[in-house]
Structures are given as C-alpha cells and as structure tokens.
Amino acid sequence: MHESTILLRELDGDGVLRLTLNDEKRRNALSEAMLAQLGDALADAGADPAVRVVVLAAAGPAFCAGHDLKELTAGRSAPDRGRAYFAQVMTACSGVMQAIVTCPKPVIAEVAGVATAAGCQLVASCDLAIAAETARFSTPGVHIGLFCSTPMVALSRNVGSKHAMEMLLTGDMVAAARAAEIGLVNRVVAPEALRDATLELARKIASKSSMTLATGKRAFYAQREMPLAEAYDYAAGIMVENMLARDAEEGIGAFVEKRAPQWQDR
C-alpha cells in the first residue's frame, strides 16, 4: 500500500476530523510511516481552527497491532544490533502519544477491533474512547520476551495500578466490557452503532468553545502530575484567566439571559 493511503483524513462540517488508520495488511501497525503521518496529522489538527475534535478510527478487524515487528527485526542487522534504530522508533512513538495529549483539540478513539501493545497505548493516550462490543485490548509483550514498558505509561495513567499490572504481567486479552469497567474506555456499544455513537459524542464536544476545551485539556493533564495543594493553586490561576476570556463572559451572560451562546473561541 502506498504510504499516502495508510492514514485517511476526513473533516466534516461540524469540525470533527476523522483520522482512519488504513493499513489493514499490517493490521494498522505503527510503522515508521504510520507514526510520521499520525504525528503530522495531529500537528495539523492542533493548528487548524476548522478542526474542533479529532476522532481516531481504523479500517479492518484490527484497530492497531502496535509496533511493526518486521521493521524492528530488520533493524537488528545494523552493527549495533539495532540499538540506535530501536531508540529512534520508540522516541517517535512516544512523541505521537504525547502529541495526542498536548493537542489542544480533544481526541476520541473509536475502537471496533483488536488494540494490542502500542495499539492499546494509542487508545489509552486518547482523551476519550468508545469501543464496540467486538473490541479487545491487550499488552502482550510478555509472550515474546518484551515487556510493554512504553504502553505501560499511558495504561497506568488511565486504569488502576492492579488492573494495569495484570494486563502487563499476563498479556491476556481484555474484552470491551471489562475495558470499560477498569476505565480504559468510556463506553461500549453495538458494532453497528459505533460510528454514530462516536460522532454524537464528538459533535457534542465540538459545539463548545474551542478555547475553553483547549484550556481545560491542558490544565487537566498538567494538574494530574502535581501534589494536591500545587494542583489547586495552578487550577485556581487557570480559572481566573478563563473567567477573563471573552467566551467565558459570553457563556455566563448567555446562561443568565437564557439564550444560546455565540462562541468566538477566544
């Protein structure tokens, strides 16, 4: 498949950008090409005022199989047995995961199939996730002698420690309903309802002030890593600045006057 077709982009009139992993032959693996295109697409989405929400979906039975193990294996032929290449790939992958978190637009994973290893990491890195009943999740590195250490970072920040450790230590496949129970996904729907359910959520979020969403998303991830008192001090400062923003003044005024707000995204 030509590299230009492995990631599809579609922007609708409501500001919802749909990014579709489209490399079914490789089970939508995070190859070098896929990582590069995902990184570019997220950067473009963050800078494009027409984009209000990003949906990350996938074609075929697999959402994402993680790293392309054939590419990684080929890297072992280098004199350093692949050390430099492995570091390059892991850095690129970590960069994409962080780009999801730092993107000012909310990112929603739409998961119809299997998400394994770095593919599970991709789901965990998104702000929200909707899964079909057919979806499955795992961090199966232990089966091949490779602990899923980078997927662990996103996984451990989204599910409880014991649930994360069970997935990481056993490599077992987790059903969609269980993934919802432990907080890896927000909700589970019938396969035929997945796209509509995701779009409904995306459009609801897209109807809000993008300035407010960007402010809130940035603050959410920043305060999460702070001690309690520091987090409250930081969040109070964010609230003050947010109150002074034009859209907060408009939104509060619209609420008091019982009318729909007119956002200017500033």
Rank of each mutant, 00 (worst) to 15 (best):
T150F: 11
P61G: 05
G160V: 05
T150C: 08
A33W: 00
I144H: 06
P104E: 04
P104K: 03
G183A: 05
T5K: 07
A45M: 06
G66W: 07
K70R: 13
A59G: 08
G251S: 09
V188L: 10
V111F: 06
L168A: 00
V111K: 03
M243Y: 15
R266W: 09
E10A: 10
R52L: 11
Q262A: 07
D40M: 13
A235Q: 00
G75K: 03
E249G: 11
A236S: 11
I100K: 01
N158M: 10
Q223N: 01
A58E: 05
S149P: 04
D265G: 06
A177D: 14
P227F: 05
A179K: 09
R76L: 14
A222M: 05
A229P: 00
R83E: 12
T212Q: 10
D196H: 01
R195S: 10
K25L: 09
F147M: 12
I238D: 01
L199G: 03
R246D: 11
L122R: 06
R195Y: 10
P261G: 03
V153C: 06
K204T: 13
M167R: 01
D40Q: 14
L168I: 06
M211C: 11
P104H: 05
V96F: 03
R83N: 13
Q98R: 13
Q262E: 14
M165S: 07
E200K: 15
D23W: 03
A78M: 14
H67D: 08
F63Y: 15
L7Y: 04
E71S: 06
V153W: 03
K204P: 00
V51S: 09
H163C: 06
E225M: 08
G171D: 02
E241L: 15
A124I: 02
P151I: 09
R224S: 11
Q121Y: 01
V185H: 02
Q37E: 10
V54D: 03
M239W: 11
R52Y: 08
A222E: 14
R195N: 13
T102M: 08
A112D: 01
I6G: 00
H163T: 06
R76V: 15
G39E: 02
I144L: 09
Q223C: 12
A206H: 04
M97R: 07
G39W: 02
E225V: 09
K208Y: 14
T91D: 11
E192M: 12
E32I: 05
A177E: 14
M1G: 12
V111R: 00
N28S: 03
A206S: 08
E200R: 15
M152I: 02
L72T: 07
A92Q: 14
V256S: 02
V114C: 04
R81M: 10
F86L: 15
T170V: 07
M239R: 13
E200H: 12
L38D: 02
E241Q: 14
A124V: 05
T5W: 01
R9D: 12
A57W: 00
G183Q: 01
R178E: 08
A74H: 10
E257A: 14
A175R: 13
L7K: 07
D68P: 00
A179C: 09
A59Q: 00
T134D: 14
R224K: 08
V96R: 00
N22D: 09
D127P: 01
T20C: 03
D44M: 08
A193R: 14
S31Y: 03
E192D: 15
A135S: 15
E3C: 07
K258G: 05
L7Q: 06
A50S: 03
V54W: 06
R27A: 04
K258P: 03
N186D: 15
T5V: 10
L42Q: 02
D127W: 04
A206W: 10
